[in-house]
Computed example of a mutant assay.
Amino acid sequence: MAATSEPAVGVTAVAAAVVLLAAAGVAGLWALAMARLSVHVNTYQVAVRHPLLPGPSATVPLRQIRRMSVVHGSARPWTVWWCPWPGGWGRAAVIRTGPALRLELTSGRAFVVSVDEPEGAVRAFRRLR
């Protein structure tokens, strides 16, 4: 009897499928985990954090914020997690298209973060000013 290589091909295909499914599962969990950011405004700073992951996070002292406003954010691959905007004019944490909070800093730079209710953060900032 002659040996055939068909079982080896089947095992390779199954292994490749398992690896692809695992990668898709990890990517799906990561996307689910990144779907939310929290913004905390207190008397000293504005803090942007992820509620599940330990980092990255950003804090901006209130004395460095000139103005805070509500804008419409558009998710792009280069605007996730503190990556510089094209041209280097600001920073963003826009993880989905929709309402966003824009911080105009005293340095002339801007920081945009997508949140569910940016109006609440703007009201808190105005009360503290």
Results as ranks from 00 to 15, higher is better:
Arg76Val: 03
Leu101Trp: 00
Ala17Leu: 12
Arg127Leu: 13
Val46Met: 05
Thr12Arg: 15
Asp116Val: 12
Arg91Met: 15
Ala47Ile: 11
Ala100Gly: 11
Phe125Leu: 07
Glu117Val: 11
Val9Gly: 04
Arg76Phe: 09
Gly98Pro: 01
Gly10Cys: 13
Ala15Ser: 11
Pro51Gln: 00
Ala23Ser: 07
Gly10Val: 15
Leu53Phe: 08
Val80Ile: 10
Tyr44Thr: 13
Gly10Pro: 10
Arg67Lys: 14
Asn42Gln: 00
Val115Ile: 12
Gln45Lys: 09
Gly87Pro: 06
Pro118Phe: 00
Leu32Trp: 15
Gly25Arg: 02
Gly55His: 03
Thr12Gln: 15
Pro86Met: 07
Val19Tyr: 04
Leu32Asp: 09
Arg96Gln: 08
Ser69Gln: 14
Pro51Leu: 09
Trp78His: 12
Ser5Gly: 15
Arg36Phe: 07
Gly10Ile: 11
Val14Glu: 13
Ser57Thr: 13
Pro61Asp: 00
Arg67Cys: 11
Arg123His: 11
Glu117Arg: 14
Asn42Gly: 01
Trp82Tyr: 14
Pro7Leu: 08
Phe111Ser: 04
Arg109Phe: 05
Trp85Gln: 13
Arg129Asp: 02
Thr12Glu: 14
Ala3Leu: 15
Pro7Ile: 01
Asp116Glu: 10
Glu6Asp: 12
Val71Met: 00
Ile95Tyr: 07
Pro99Val: 00
Arg36Gly: 10
Gly55Glu: 05
Ala93Phe: 06
Gln64Ala: 10
Val46Asp: 03
Ile95Pro: 05
Pro77Val: 12
Ala124Tyr: 04
Ser107Glu: 10
Val41Leu: 04
Pro99Lys: 09
Ala24Gln: 04
Leu103Glu: 02
Leu29Tyr: 06
Ala3Lys: 14
Arg127Gln: 15
Trp81Glu: 14
Ala121Met: 02
Trp85Glu: 15
Gly25Pro: 04
Ala27Tyr: 03
Arg91Phe: 13
Met68Gln: 01
Ser5Met: 11
Leu105Pro: 03
Ser5Leu: 11
Val71Glu: 09
Pro86Asp: 09
Pro51Cys: 04
Ala15Pro: 00
Pro99Thr: 05
Trp89Phe: 12
Trp81His: 10
Pro7Thr: 03
Val9Tyr: 13
Gly55Met: 06
Ala100Pro: 04
Ser74Ile: 12
Ala124Trp: 02
Ala35Asn: 14
Ala93Asn: 15
Leu32Thr: 08
